[in-house]
Simulated scan of single mutants.
Amino acid sequence: MQISGMLLSSGMFFLMFLGMIFLGQLLYYQQHFRFYEEEIYFNEARILRNIAQNNKLENNQTLVLNIGNVTYKNSLYYVELNNGKKYQLDELK
């Protein structure tokens, strides 16, 4: 009886250990995914700013594109993506 109880408890600890490793890997990859997602959104905002700058927006003028809007005010570009992210970018010189 004592051997089967010991086998059961060691099996439970082994499963808990495997679960902790799995959870750690899951959190690690989730953090990397979010970082890359934010980088993609920022690059989209930079692309929209470049398009707006090439179109020579004037002060308080807005350019509406399919992935977001760009407004030019006081030498700054305010980019709002369709997913709700907002960025404030300087002019490229």
Results as ranks from 00 to 15, higher is better:
Q2N: 14
F22Q: 13
L26D: 11
Q31D: 15
Q30A: 14
R46V: 10
Q53D: 06
N74S: 15
F22N: 10
G68V: 01
Q61Y: 00
G24Q: 10
K56S: 12
Y78M: 07
F13W: 11
F42L: 14
T71A: 09
I3C: 08
I21S: 15
L15P: 01
L63K: 00
Q61D: 05
F13Q: 11
G84N: 04
S75N: 15
N83K: 06
M12D: 11
L57H: 00
F13G: 12
I21K: 15
L57W: 00
Y28E: 12
Y29W: 13
Q88K: 13
E44L: 01
K93N: 15
Q30R: 11
G24E: 15
S10A: 13
Y87L: 03
M20N: 12
E58A: 11
N60Y: 07
Q61M: 04
A45N: 01
L15K: 07
N82C: 04
G11I: 09
L18F: 15
L92M: 13
L63A: 04
Y78E: 07
Q2S: 13
V79Y: 02
S75V: 04
Y72C: 01
N69G: 06
E39I: 02
F17G: 11
I21H: 14
L27F: 11
G5W: 04
I67P: 01
R46S: 03
N66F: 09
Y36M: 08
E58T: 10
H32C: 08
S4N: 07
F42M: 05
V70G: 00
I40P: 02
M12S: 12
H32R: 10
R34T: 13
N60K: 12
L48H: 02
Y41A: 15
N60M: 08
Y78N: 09
Q30V: 05
M6Q: 12
N50G: 13
Q53N: 07
G24W: 06
I67H: 02
L26A: 14
Y78T: 03
F14I: 10
F13L: 15
R34M: 14
N74P: 03
S75D: 15
L92I: 08
Y77N: 04
N82L: 09
I51Y: 06
M12K: 09
A52N: 01
F42Y: 08
E37I: 02
T71I: 05
L63V: 03
A52K: 04
I40F: 01
L81C: 05
N54H: 10
N74F: 06
F42T: 04
T62D: 05
L18G: 15
I21D: 11
E37S: 14
Y78C: 01
R49T: 03
R49K: 15
